[in-house]
Amino acid sequence: MAYKTVLAVTGADLGDGDLKLAIALCEEAGAHLAVLVVGLAAPPPIGEYAAFVSQDWLSERQADMDILQTRAAAVTALLASSGVSSDVSSEYAEEGAADDVIGRRARYCDLLFVGPELLSRGVLKTKTVEGGLFSSGKPLLLAPEGTSPTLKPKRILIAWDSRIEASNAVSHARDLLAAAEDVRIVLVDPLVGEDGQGEEPGADLAAYLARHGVKVTVDRLSSQGRTVDETLRQHAVDTAAELMVMGAYGHSRLRERIFGGVTQSVIDDTPLPILMAR
């Protein structure tokens, strides 16, 4: 799919580093940049002292909203000076509902960008990733510190396990895959057979992608005592991959999100940008 609208989430107290990366992505792709500035609301006071501190709490909330609006104005000025097509919105969200707020906004983009500054923030990072994955149906591009995100990667690694989440991630990345010079389908300890990944693991996906003009090879790896995420990370380094495409695994129950082990580990520690979808 073509990325015509990129959404970047930032916090009221974050800098401009993530936004500058998002601007560069949109310039590269000729895309519109939507920015959502999020402030997390302080929880209301509870217990026997609630009545005495409620005015302080209201004052704190008002101060937070003032900071949020100041930040939104600064972001608007930054984007205006960049020349990219853009819009800015802001939300002062209760912490428990912030993921749904972000997810609803992300439904109107093609890609949700999560930069290194946001990835360093525990609560807002979690709410952004969960909101994007569970509430929008759109892919995320995660760009950790020290990486160079691009929408025109030459070397792409697909973390493949034949599950629907991985298939959806590949579908979202198909235009990137077709434009790349080297695409590697990587399977770690694949299971052969009808109940596993077929008689020749990775072959079906390779044939599918080849029909879309993708230059693809299949790498079947043995973990050799390492974890799956460690094996994937090392292979990404060994092949000089610029992007990893993978499915995100987990479950949603009310507001509790539980990620699968590989998904969480890769999010927390990756040497390259990741395009992730459910």
Rank of each mutant, 00 (worst) to 15 (best):
L36S: 05
V38A: 09
G39D: 10
L40E: 10
L40K: 08
A41E: 10
P43A: 02
P44Y: 11
P45T: 04
E48M: 14
E48F: 13
Y49R: 13
A50F: 01
A50L: 10
A51N: 00
F52N: 00
V53I: 09
Q55N: 06
D56N: 01
W57K: 00
W57E: 00
W57N: 00
L58W: 00
S59T: 09
E60K: 07
Q62I: 02
A63Q: 14
D64P: 08
M65T: 05
M65E: 09
D66G: 06
D66I: 12
I67V: 11
I67P: 01
I67C: 07
I67Q: 09
L68N: 03
L68E: 01
R71T: 07
A72V: 06
A73T: 08
A74N: 08
A74E: 06
A74R: 04
V75P: 10
L78T: 14
L79N: 12
A80Q: 07
A80S: 06
S81N: 15
S81D: 08
S81F: 03
S81P: 02
S82Q: 01
G83H: 03
V84Y: 02
S85K: 06
S86K: 05
S86V: 02
S89D: 12
S89T: 11
S89C: 05
S89A: 14
S90C: 07
S90N: 10
E91L: 05
E91V: 08
A93D: 14
A97S: 15
A97N: 15
A98Q: 13
A98W: 13
R104C: 13
A106D: 05
A106W: 09
R107T: 13
R107M: 06
R107I: 05
Y108A: 05
C109T: 09
D110K: 01
D110P: 02
D110L: 02
L112P: 10
L112E: 09
L112S: 10
G115H: 09
P116M: 01
P116R: 13
E117C: 04
E117T: 04
L119E: 14
S120N: 08
S120K: 12
S120C: 07
R121C: 13
G122S: 13
L124A: 02
L124F: 05
K125I: 02
T126I: 01
T126S: 14
V129L: 15
E130S: 15
G131V: 08
G132D: 08
L133E: 14
F134Y: 12
F134S: 12
S135C: 08
G137W: 11
K138I: 03
K138A: 03
P139E: 01
L140F: 06
L141F: 14
L142K: 03
L142R: 01
A143S: 15
A143L: 15
T147W: 00
S148G: 15
L151R: 12
K152H: 12
P153C: 13
P153G: 15
P153L: 13
K154S: 14
R155H: 14
L157C: 07
L157F: 07
A159H: 05
D161N: 15
S162H: 07
S162M: 04
S162D: 09
I164L: 11
I164F: 06
E165L: 00
E165P: 00
A166Y: 02
S167W: 00
S167F: 03
A169N: 01
S171Y: 08
S171K: 05
H172W: 09
H172E: 10
R174H: 04
R174G: 04
R174M: 14
D175L: 06
D175E: 10
L177F: 01
L177Y: 01
A178F: 08
A180P: 00
